[in-house]
């Protein structure tokens, strides 16, 4: 029993070491790559941004839009008892921007882009393509991971802004349609209580989530072992681990902002 726990702990430590090494590799190439003329082509980064960002737009819109609707109805149910239905507007806006939009967008991107990255890199690994890059003395981390990392780093915050807006739109539809709040009043209340710091704390979360998704997907992809089954396992692992780490990071960051009164 003790030996089994010890073995599991060692495995986790090894895993953490591997992820840390990958992160330092990626950061190294982002910082020093441009000086060596070894920065990924703009074309590759753009391709990844289109794939991870643009193709997720509709999905993020719907997820956050419906969450906005649900949130408005749920809070209205409570606030009606106190005759404070008008505060639905600010509640939806603040909780979307600070919390729900970053987390939901993160989960959507992890499920969609993260799994695709893990599957793609995993397939490349098991079909010797990664080894081929290495033999051509092209560093796989530089060639494959940096562009994906940068793409997610930039696109997740953009998607979060879109998510904020679609969540507010969802709340607006419920608020004006079914709760009969005056549209002007709804928007006024929204922006009266929504502060700029609510938006940027959400965006800081988004940047961290984007990094987590790219890092875990690249790591699991590049460490795929075995054939098709290994690719499947890497994909599942990347999604599951990203989900857990996103929630964990969200908890830590929220606590930090809450206790430091930002």
């Amino acid at each position: 029993m003790v030996s089994r726990i010890g073995k599991a702990v060692i495995e986790y430590l090894e895993w953490g070491k591997g992820v840390g090494a990958l992160l330092s590799g990626i950061v190294y190439w982002i910082v020093f790559g441009p000086f060596k003329g070894k920065f990924p082509r703009r074309r590759y980064i753009f391709q990844q941004m289109v794939f991870a960002g643009l193709r997720s737009v509709l999905l993020v819109f719907f997820v956050d839009f419906f969450t906005g609707i649900v949130l408005a109805m749920q809070t209205a149910y409570q606030l009606e008892k106190m005759g404070a239905v008008i505060y639905v507007a600010s509640l939806v806006a603040v909780s979307m921007c600070r919390e729900l939009s970053p987390v939901l967008t993160g989960l959507v991107v992890a499920g969609r882009a993260g799994s695709a990255i893990a599957a793609e890199l995993g397939t490349m690994k098991v079909t010797e393509q990664v080894e081929a890059l290495d033999t051509m003395s092209i560093n796989p981390v530089r060639f494959l991971c940096v562009s994906r990392f940068l793409a997610l780093l930039l696109m997740v915050p953009c998607l979060v802004i879109l998510g904020n807006l679609s969540g507010i739109l969802g709340g607006f539809i419920v608020g004006t349609g079914s709760l009969h709040i005056n549209p002007d009043l709804y928007m006024q209340t929204t922006f009266k209580h929504l502060e700029i710091k609510d938006v940027y704390t959400g965006l800081i979360k988004a940047v961290v989530f984007g990094m987590i998704i790219a890092l875990i997907a690249c790591f699991e992809g590049l460490n795929t072992k075995g054939g098709a089954e290994g690719v499947g396992r890497a994909t599942t692992r990347s999604v599951v681990i990203s989900f857990i780490l996103i929630i964990l990071a969200d908890c830590v960051i929220t606590a930090f902002f809450y206790f430091s009164k930002i």
Binding site: M124, A132, L133, M136, S137
Partner: peptide, 28 residues
């Protein structure tokens, strides 16, 4: 890495990059 630039390698299953065309693969 510099020595490896003087190597070429043909893999058992070719190991071409799937996301690139024939031209881009040779150009890499």
């Amino acid at each position: 890495a510099n020595i490896k630039k003087n190597f070429g390698m043909l893999f058992q299953y070719s190991a071409l990059l799937d996301s690139m065309t024939v031209e881009e693969n040779v150009a890499l």
